[in-house]
Amino acid sequence: MARFVNVAAGQLGPVARSETRTEVVARLMALMRQAHANGCDLIVYPELALTTFFPRWYMEDQAEIDSFFEHEMPGPQTRALFDLARELGIGFCLGYAELAVENGETHRHNTSILVDKRGKTISRYRKVHLPGHAEHEPWRRFQHLEKRYFEPGSGFVVADAFNGAIGMAICNDRRWPETYRVMGLQGVEMVLIGYNTPVHNPPAPDHDDLSLFHNRLVMQSGAYQNGTWVVGVAKAGIEEGVDQIGGSCIVAPSGEIVAACTTKGDEIALARCDLDLCNSYKRTTFNFDVHRQPHAYGLIVERRGQHMMADGTPVPSGKSGRGL
């Protein structure tokens, strides 16, 4: 029996620094209602969807920084979104800044969660590939201080959800082939990616005209090379003076874009995703068990404290270091 998931890419336009959580959640709920009216099982929201993209500012006051973080999820201002999901019977993926206290220690992450049709969180992902810088760089027109405000996550997890194998990634993760391959090796069938990407790249302004092309390039290649659907969803438009690329789209396992947003505002793009279409690629061109030859790559990884080759065999005598 075919496994179809009707998906909405829930793009957001700019979120002002003065906008409250309640106001933003109302926008998310409006998009959720549109997705439900179009028969969707799942809506995917952008990275750091609940606030403006605050790493563009250098801040030293920890209380000011923490005002952008969620101390619990759902919390008083976000519970309405979970309640609506349960009422409508639709799942969602939401990106936000997470403040977590674990074993008495406070940690801050750039996080996404996957929520099922009952309004229950079934998977959490913390961004691994943090871009930008950690200290104030006054020469920039705007900052990109993710390395200052967040800790990196520790891995990519694929969850059984929506009758398939669903993974998550966030923004800069999408640029790295390891992101898709680690999930591809777990049999992923759909990768959900929220992002906030400025048009202007201060260290490499010659890339600016290519920003939208590069955005699609990495998601399309990641989809094709791992036989998976990819749903990429932006916060778009001119936010606090910074132009963001938009370009939200849904990519098939063939690498083809099958749906895309056409504005830089609040909008949904829709696709009926056949998860069984992944098998056409996973069992032929990208059948890892038959065609992939990791022993020939010369890569060395550390697994459970022991150095191993990428295919899981012990490191040969005389080799050391890590390559992934």
Rank of each mutant, 00 (worst) to 15 (best):
E98Y: 01
M219L: 13
R292L: 15
P177V: 11
G153E: 01
R181E: 05
R118M: 08
E102N: 07
V301K: 13
G194W: 00
G323S: 09
A169E: 01
P205I: 10
H71I: 06
Y180Q: 12
A100Y: 03
A223R: 02
M219Q: 09
T263L: 06
T52K: 03
Q220D: 14
P74S: 07
F288I: 01
R79W: 04
W139R: 15
S248T: 00
A271L: 08
S317C: 07
H144Y: 15
R124L: 11
P253C: 01
N172I: 07
L212S: 07
L84V: 08
Q186I: 09
Y96V: 02
M73V: 13
N215G: 04
N279T: 06
G255Q: 03
T106Q: 10
E267S: 06
W57A: 09
V101N: 01
E70L: 07
L12I: 01
R216V: 15
N226Q: 10
T111A: 01
L185A: 11
I43T: 03
E72L: 02
N38Q: 13
M32I: 08
L185F: 08
R174S: 11
H133C: 04
G132L: 06
L99W: 04
D311C: 05
E47S: 05
W139S: 15
V191S: 09
E137N: 09
W229A: 04
K147R: 15
V157Q: 06
L84H: 05
W139A: 15
L185I: 01
H129Y: 12
